[in-house]
Amino acid sequence: MEVINARSALLSNYEVLSLLRELEADHLASTKTAFRIKKEEEASGTTPLPGGSREPEILDNLRTVEVEAIEYLAADWQPTSKQTAAGVTKLVKALAPYDLTKGEKLQIVNLAPSETVELYVIVEELEDRFGSDQPVEILEKVKESLSAPDTPAANGTSAVTPRYTAAAPVNGTYEEPDNWDEEDEQMWDDTGEGAGVEGELDVDDD
């Protein structure tokens, strides 16, 4: 192993979180596919080749760090739940005119300060460098870049409850049957998977 460049670029918390979420989604998708293939094989009666398990290798170390890091980065006391990719880009562009260092900009993005005290901690000698008006402007820009806490649907963290409460009064009752259908389908899938597991257990018993 060789280290070519230990610090080639800085990453914001939001970027890391989206990368980890992608990994998580990939992982879920691949385990689902593997499960389906297994089920199909069982249904068609073909026995898998000995030793040739098609299940994707589960990387325990990756899963651990993935789950723990997502938990930390998506915690409700982190600003990431209110951030969007577009919002972060906009904020970085808005911060460009100020004479902030790279590290300071990164921390403003990561911590999304809402009060001057927080900005004092992040930016060295805030008052000498920026006077008293610019910090307020910076805070204003940070605020603009965050989406309202009520609509974090883009991240899908707490989208379930608002969707029902918002959709029902506007669209009336017609919206609901659709949802029920979808849910029925999912339910049906679930029982299918459950049956698959049972079948497997039966085989073991025999």
Partner: peptide, 29 residues
């Protein structure tokens, strides 16, 4: 708090994983 580090290494892929695209097998490795 996160950085990108460029690393180099020589890695092996087990024959069991020859079915997967090399990029995928290497990523796992």
């Amino acid at each position: 708090m996160f950085v990108l580090s460029i690393l180099g290494d020589t890695l092996s892929v087990h024959p069991r994983n020859f079915g997967a695209p090399p990029a995928q097998a290497l990523t796992n490795q």
